[in-house]
Design a protein around this nucleic acid. Structure first.
Length: 224
DNA sequence: GTCCAGGGCCGTT
DNA sequence: AACGGCCATGGA
């Protein structure tokens, strides 16, 4: 492609980011909002759980599931690991509101089993480099690119851009690309933004805010 | 009652 | 490679 096409695309995506930043100031993603409501600090283990629980599900339902887990005091990685092994039924019951609860209970158990048995703690697992973490996560059942990248960006604080349904709508709305495949869009965003965790986190959060319809009319994104 | 929500997997073409 | 069915709940 001619060099100016790329330059224009750079300015377009980056400009969209800047205009969203202007509109929202300090964006509040899922987790910041959740933590504020729960008055807790950002909890990496909860982020990992949320990444799986929110698959094809309303965030409200995920909150119900997380509340159940919290009430039952099974948020810690050790407890979930144990319960996944010894009392899968309880785990299923607690996360039931999030939907697809049998699959999700299985997938959460397998993920935690992997972490605990190979790395002992989430922190230690996330100490490795980005590519290595991502490759390992993608091997786990029920962890596709979006779930893996959510974990890596929000819990691991690695600079990797998350592509989800909201991002795709955003891309279509602003005619940023014709292809909508995961890898292509991820490259597109990453190549046109500074390689920065905060930028990726905030941009993604603001794309979701736009898509949720704050200030949206008739299914449009309203920018500027 | 119907529709939808921040995926991923597995089968079929 | 692309597409369809499937998993399941709670809220509008």
């Amino acid at each position: 492609m001619p060099i100016w096409d790329k330059v224009l695309k750079v300015t377009k995506i980056f400009r969209l980011y800047l205009s969203l930043l202007k509109k929202y100031g300090k964006p509040e993603g899922f987790w910041r909002k959740w933590c504020k409501r729960r008055k807790t600090k950002k909890d990496k283990e909860e982020i990992v759980l949320g990444a799986i629980l929110t698959q094809r599900t309303n965030w409200k339902n995920v909150e119900l599931a997380l509340r159940n887990l919290r009430r039952a005091k099974v948020l810690s990685i050790e407890r979930i690991y144990q319960i996944g092994k010894k009392n899968r039924g309880l785990l299923e019951k607690l996360i039931r509101p999030s939907g697809f609860y049998k699959q999700k209970a299985e997938n959460i158990s397998r993920l935690y089993e992997f972490i605990v048995e190979n790395y002992k703690s989430l922190e230690k697992f996330l100490k490795q480099d980005l590519e290595s973490c991502r490759r390992q996560l993608l091997k786990l059942p029920g962890v596709g690119p979006e779930t893996a990248d959510s974990i890596l960006l929000y819990a691991g604080e690695f600079p990797i851009f998350v592509i989800d349904e909201y991002t795709r709508r955003f891309v279509k709305k602003h005619n940023l690309a014709n292809k909508l495949s995961y890898d292509y869009l991820q490259q597109l965003f990453q190549q046109n933004l500074p390689n920065d965790v905060k930028v990726y986190q905030d941009f993604h959060a603001m794309i979701v805010l736009e898509g949720k319809g704050k200030g949206r009319r008739g299914g449009d994104f309203s920018l500027l």
